[in-house]
């Protein structure tokens, strides 16, 4: 009996925090800015720190993952005499799965954690209260540009990741391992479809970007404003963000490719 009550209370608690996070998101994003030009400047600043600064890690990881995929794929496909299919394998794996998922995981670690820490520190140093006291809504001023920048950047980064991955794989398989490049491209183009593969991968990345950025800004805003609290909130962003990405990926993959 007592356990049931506790379980119920835990569930209610959880629902409440989900509701709070939802209201938080609506309040920060769906309010019109007072000064459009200023908001644009803030957004550009965040696009820089969230997107441009994540570019190096995304490009480097993308290239290496593409190269490794090509090596692994080649060694197996060569046994069946169909090493040309390495292009197909590379493109499908990157576009459908690895591009969006790995980019989102990297994004949670690189940009998500720094968003949480930054907002948490602004809370701890009373900067958020300070905005409030000046009659400026911190949700709109601090949270909204960060959230929007995250949602814009992650899908772009995921596209860049897939493209560099394919280029990396191309270099390894065609230039080093001697796969015929005509066959490489034609097999790839035959099996990759714009809507099922590229667009679906892109949609996945959009879902991930909303989830990760939402978690990151919410954890920062709701953290206990001490150095320990900020540390914990940052960890939670990375852990919850990664889990959310993987769970969402399963659901989305089932919905998109389940009937194949």
């Amino acid at each position: 009996m007592k356990m049931v009550a506790e379980l119920g209370a835990a569930l209610l608690n959880w629902l409440e925090s989900v509701g709070r996070a939802g209201i938080f998101l609506i309040q920060s994003v769906f309010r019109l800015p007072v000064r459009p030009k200023e908001s644009l400047n803030l957004l550009v600043k965040q696009l820089y720190s969230v997107g441009v600064l994540s570019l190096v890690i995304v490009v480097v990881s993308g290239a290496f993952i593409g190269m490794v995929l090509a090596l692994q794929g080649y060694s197996i496909l060569a046994k069946f005499g169909s090493e040309e299919a390495v292009g197909q394998l590379l493109a499908l794996a990157l576009l459908r799965e690895l591009g969006p998922v790995v980019t989102a995981l990297l994004f949670a670690g690189r940009a998500g954690s720094s968003l949480t820490a930054e907002i948490g520190l602004m809370k701890a140093t009373e900067q958020l209260s300070s905005f409030e006291m000046m009659g400026v809504d911190p949700l709109r001023r601090v949270i909204a540009p960060r959230f929007i920048a995250g949602v814009i950047c992650l899908p772009l980064l995921s596209l860049i990741f897939s493209a560099t991955g394919i280029i990396g794989g191309l270099i390894v398989s065609v230039n080093w391992l001697g796969v015929h490049d005509g066959a490489f491209w034609s097999l790839m183009q035959q099996s990759v479809y714009f809507d099922t593969d590229i667009l679906n991968g892109f949609i996945k990345a959009v879902f991930f970007s909303v989830a990760v950025t939402w978690i990151a800004v919410y954890q920062g805003y709701e953290c206990v404003p001490t150095s320990e609290g900020i540390g914990k909130a940052t960890t939670r962003t990375v852990v919850l963000g990664s889990l959310a990405i993987l769970a969402l990926d399963f659901v989305l993959t089932a919905a998109m490719f389940g009937d194949f």
Partner: peptide, 19 residues
Amino acid sequence: LYKARKKMGMLFQSGALFS
């Protein structure tokens, strides 16, 4: 409330400058 706060100035104990 936000309108009312425009008529208030607060010096926070920690300063709370925008970093």
